[in-house]
Amino acid sequence: MSRAAAMTAAPDTPRNATGLKALLRHGAFVISDNPVTGLSFALFVALALIAIFGPWIAPHDAFASNTAAALQKPSLHHLFGTDQLGRDIFSRVLVATRLDMTIAIASVALVFALGGVAGIAAGYFGGWTDRVVGRVSDTIMAFPLFVLAMGIVAALGNTVTNIVIATAIINFPLYARLARAEANIRREAGFVQAARLTGNSDWRILLMQILPNILPLMMVQMSLTMGYAILNAAGLSFIGLGVRPPTPEWGIMVAEGASFIASGEWWIAVFPGLSLMLAVFCFNLLGDGLRDIVDPQRRT
């Protein structure tokens, strides 16, 4: 700790309030201190609502084609215009939210469970567990990640489930390494040694002492990788993997609009692309904000 920090932190003036209340208050403080985090949280809530209620709020049928109304510019009737088959892009963008979010959440939840458990076990027990997890992570990291995802989906078959699996696999090293490093530094920490002295078994220490201290960091990681997972899934469907037309999905909609952009029909690709961007941006900002909340160094 620097001298100046030692000065300002005033270590001998204990503060009031504990636990959840303090955390909430700190969260409120962070949001008011950094309105961007508040904004991203609001955006996240909006995204979640659209994902749940999208099909019901969509003004048009997302699948109904109408060649007579093809390639119409954005108007009051078709907010985002229509595509080459005359489908309403606004409705398709709304409906697509659920699929994109589901892919991202499912893959992140999967990798959170697998990578988290493997990493914590590797960091705490060391030895062969560590070597196996390390070797698996290294092998995955030896590939350019998007390319590996392409190879996996190509091999396993062109389905949404396989996109989820591929996205989880390429994120595995990130989670495993983070959890491993955090578990490893805590393995010899004073409070873990103290827990051993007070008669806690290894598993108890792992669950009661180490896991709760790592979890917040993993949550931050989750939020940050959500954005990456969305990008990755959209990229795969952009090159024709996973989601197939006519299913509305942001990546594939951008791909459909790509051939029209050079001739000036920009709205087909731009609106799904913007939604994609907004969603990723939201998760990245949220991750940064969460890190501020979780980081005890910044907690006052």
Binding site: A189, G190, F191, Q193, A194, R196, L197, G199, S201, N213
Partner: peptide
């Protein structure tokens, strides 16, 4: 950790901060 003598053999650590679970 499960030994009956565990409780009779205890320790105070060097760094008071690091030896307490922050949660």
């Amino acid at each position: 950790a499960c030994h009956p003598k565990r409780g009779k053999l205890q320790m105070v650590f060097q760094d008071p901060t690091e030896s307490l679970n922050p949660r």
